[in-house]
């Protein structure tokens, strides 16, 4: 169980949490960087509009249309990383940036990869664009998620492309050997090197959490928990539990043998909790106190667990910060 440590209001967008800092921006586009220990504000910067952000190797990359800015989180200094010819730019890694545009009339994309010095390395135009970003690879897909490609963005090598049995219906996962993709007809594993299908399972979820050490996928939805062996595609555990919980599969977070989740109890009471992935037992649930009437429209984002803290934002954009009971700061 967790004790409330602090509430932070107006956490509008771009919430990023790591061991060093908590980053977000307010509804007035004020970027804030907080010390992860006492949650005091260390740095602020006023933007004039929405933006996207990503933390990579101690740097905060901020995408404002086709401008990519980078903040050295340690020294708190800005520099311009890259300006691209496109509608949008994002950092794939601290050394690779991707610029892309969507041509609405043609329903096609222009994609370009740049190096750290903003030199153009690679271009591809057409029906495919980036979908999920991994350590050193990109999953490309067409707009409807019926066709995919696998690109190594370090050396800009497009390894393979292939069609799918149905459209993508969730977030893909890259493991040591496979790309695992939830499709609307089931969960499919493709070989990373060849793109060949390795296994598939029916009646799957749209989101799984990956445990790299055990090479397992953990899936949780409402009253059902399952474990999938990545190497074989076998469901090793499928467990139902009795509590009246409502959990969306993507609102889960794996950490240290526990699959944390947020959701509702009795349809509209916002809660977070955890499942022990070793046995599928529900370890705890805890209500999140929110002002106003309860509603299935006033739920919680996915919880984030960093160290002894659990961070979960509610629909009113208040970030609830909790500390584990048995591990006070």
């Amino acid at each position: 169980m967790f004790n409330k440590f602090k509430n932070i209001d107006d956490v509008n967008s771009c919430l990023r949490v790591n061991e060093e800092c908590v980053i977000y921006y307010s509804s007035e586009y004020l970027l804030k960087l907080l010390d992860s220990g006492n949650l005091a504000v260390k740095f602020e910067h006023q933007f004039t509009r929405d933006f996207d952000c990503k933390v990579l190797k101690g740097n905060l990359f901020v995408s404002v249309d086709n401008d990519l800015l980078v903040l050295d989180v340690e020294n708190l200094k800005w520099e311009k990383a890259c300006q691209a010819n496109g509608q949008y730019i994002t950092a794939l890694s601290d050394h690779r940036f991707l610029a892309s545009s969507y041509r609405r009339k043609d329903k096609e994309y222009d994609n370009s990869i740049y190096d750290r010095d903003c030199n153009l390395l690679w271009e591809i135009n057409g029906e495919m664009s980036f979908r999920d970003v991994y350590q050193s690879h990109l999953l490309l897909s067409d707009r409807r998620g019926n066709k995919i490609g696998y690109l190594n963005f370090k050396d800009c090598n497009l390894l393979w492309q292939r069609g799918l049995d149905s459209s993508i219906n969730g977030e893909s996962i890259e493991t040591e050997k496979y790309i695992i993709i939830p499709l609307s007809v089931g969960l499919f594993a493709f070989d990373r090197q060849s793109g060949e299908k390795v296994w598939s399972i029916d009646n799957s979820l749209s989101h799984y959490s990956y445990d790299e050490q055990k090479d397992s996928l953990y899936g949780l939805i409402s009253k059902s928990f399952e474990v999938v062996d990545v190497s074989t595609g076998n469901r090793e555990v499928k467990k139902e539990f009795g509590e009246d919980l409502h959990i969306a599969s993507h609102l889960t977070y794996y950490s240290n043998d526990l699959l944390y989740f947020s959701g509702y109890r009795d349809n509209n009471i916002p809660i977070f909790g955890a499942i022990n992935v070793k046995n599928g037992n529900l370890v705890f649930t805890q209500e999140v106190e929110m002002p106003g009437e309860k509603s299935f429209r006033r739920g919680l984002d996915r919880p984030i667990i960093v160290g002894n803290r659990l961070y979960v934002r509610d629909a009113m954009k208040t970030l609830h910060v909790y500390e584990r009971e048995d591990h006070p700061a």
């Binding site: 996207d52 949008y88 969507y102 994609n111 980036f130 998620g145």
Partner: peptide, 24 residues
């Protein structure tokens, strides 16, 4: 309308995470 980047990021699965792409 004002549409936050978080909304755009989660609903625009492929390509640039722009409001235009979401509205399309």
């Amino acid at each position: 309308a004002t549409i936050s980047q978080d909304i755009i990021n989660k609903l625009v699965k492929t390509g640039p995470k722009t409001k235009e792409a979401l509205i399309d």
